[in-house]
C-alpha cells in the first residue's frame, strides 16, 4: 500500500455517505408524503415538492443530516446548559459516569495485571475467569444492576459508573499483562545483575515499557465505558443522560432527537479517544520515545 495522504479519500467517502443519506431520507420518507396526499385527496406531489417535503417532516423515518445538525445546534447553543432540554446537560451526565467508571476500571485493571504478572497462582486462576467474565453480556444485565443497586440504596452516578468499570477493566488487564511482560529476557537479566529488587524492576523496567500497551488499551477502554454509561442510563426511567434521550426518543417516535443524541455520543467518543491519544503521545515524548515507535 502506498502511503499517501488520507484526507482526500476520507473526505470523498464522507461526502458519498452524506449523499447516500439524503437519497435515503427522500426515499424512506416519501411513502408518508404520498399517504398524506392521498388522505387529503390531492394529487401526488411532484418530485421537486416531494424532496423539500421529505426533508422537513416532524417525525421522519430517516431525518436528513441538516435536520439533525439543526436540532443539535438548537439543543446545545441556543439552550441554557442547566436546562433539561439542553443536550450538553445530558452529555455531561453521561460523561461524568463514563469518566468515573473509566478511572475505577483502569485502576482495577492495572492492579489485577500487576497481581497476574507477579503471582503464578493468580496468573493461572484469574486470567481464564477474566476472559469468561467478558462473555457475560453485562450490557444486557445493566438494568438489573441499576435496579438492584437502587434498591440497596446506591443511586446516582455510581451504578452507571460500575457498568463502565466492568466493561473497561478487561482491555486494561489484557493490555497491561502483555505490557508488563514485554521486557525481554536480557533486560530482566540486566536488572538482576544490578541486584535490583522486585519493586525496582517493576518501576524502572516493567512499568515504563508497558506504557505503549497501556495507552492502546485505554483507547478501547474509554470508548467502551461510554457505551456502558449510555446503556446504564436506559433503565433508570429515562431521567437524564444520552441513553435516556435515546429511550425517550424511541418511546415518543422523536427520530430527530434519537439521531442528535447519537451524534452527540459519537462526538463524545471521538473526543475521549483523541484525548487519550494526546496523553499517549505526551507520555511517550516525556519518556524519550517516538510515539507509536515501540508498538508499530
Amino acid at each position: 500500500m502506498t502511503r499517501k495522504g488520507k484526507t482526500i479519500p476520507v473526505l470523498t467517502i464522507v461526502a458519498a455517505i452524506v449523499m447516500l443519506w439524503y437519497i435515503g431520507s427522500v426515499w424512506m420518507n416519501a411513502p408518508f408524503e404520498y399517504d398524506q396526499a392521498e388522505r387529503l385527496s390531492k394529487p401526488a406531489p411532484a418530485f421537486g415538492e416531494l424532496v423539500t417535503k421529505t426533508m422537513a417532516q416532524e417525525r421522519p423515518v430517516l431525518p436528513a443530516p441538516h435536520q439533525v445538525l439543526t436540532e443539535i445546534y438548537e439543543t446545545t447553543v441556543l439552550k441554557k446548559i442547566t436546562s433539561k432540554r439542553s443536550l450538553i446537560y445530558h452529555a455531561w451526565i453521561t460523561l461524568s459516569a463514563t469518566l468515573l467508571g473509566f478511572v475505577i476500571g483502569t485502576a482495577l485493571g492495572i492492579a489485577l495485571a500487576v497481581g497476574i504478572v507477579h503471582n503464578r497462582a493468580m496468573d493461572k486462576s484469574v486470567m481464564p475467569w477474566v476472559i469468561t467474565s467478558q462473555t457475560i453480556p453485562i450490557l444486557a444485565i445493566a438494568p438489573m444492576i441499576i435496579v438492584v443497586l437502587n434498591a440497596a440504596g446506591i443511586s446516582g452516578l455510581l451504578p452507571k459508573a460500575l457498568i463502565s468499570t466492568y466493561l473497561s477493566f478487561f482491555p486494561v488487564v489484557v493490555g497491561m499483562v502483555k505490557g508488563l511482560r514485554s521486557p525481554s529476557m536480557s533486560e530482566l537479566d540486566l536488572m538482576r545483575t544490578y541486584n535490583a529488587s522486585r519493586a525496582q524492576t517493576f518501576w524502572k523496567l516493567r512499568w515504563p515499557s508497558s506504557m505503549p500497551y497501556l495507552f492502546t488499551s485505554l483507547k478501547v477502554a474509554v470508548a467502551i465505558s461510554l457505551v456502558g454509561a449510555i446503556v446504564g442510563e436506559m433503565p433508570t426511567g429515562a431521567v437524564a443522560g444520552l441513553g435516556a434521550r435515546l429511550l425517550a426518543g424511541s418511546y415518543y417516535g422523536q427520530t430527530i432527537q434519537i439521531w442528535s443524541a447519537l451524534f452527540m455520543a459519537a462526538a463524545l467518543a471521538a473526543v475521549l479517544v483523541m484525548l487519550v491519544g494526546f496523553a499517549h503521545a505526551y507520555v511517550l515524548r516525556q519518556m524519550g520515545q517516538k510515539p507509536g515507535g515501540a508498538l508499530a
Binding site: I230, L262, A265, A269, A270
Partner: peptide
Amino acid sequence: SALPIIGV
C-alpha cells in the same frame, strides 16, 4: 468501531 453503535 469506537462509537456507541448500540444506540442505533
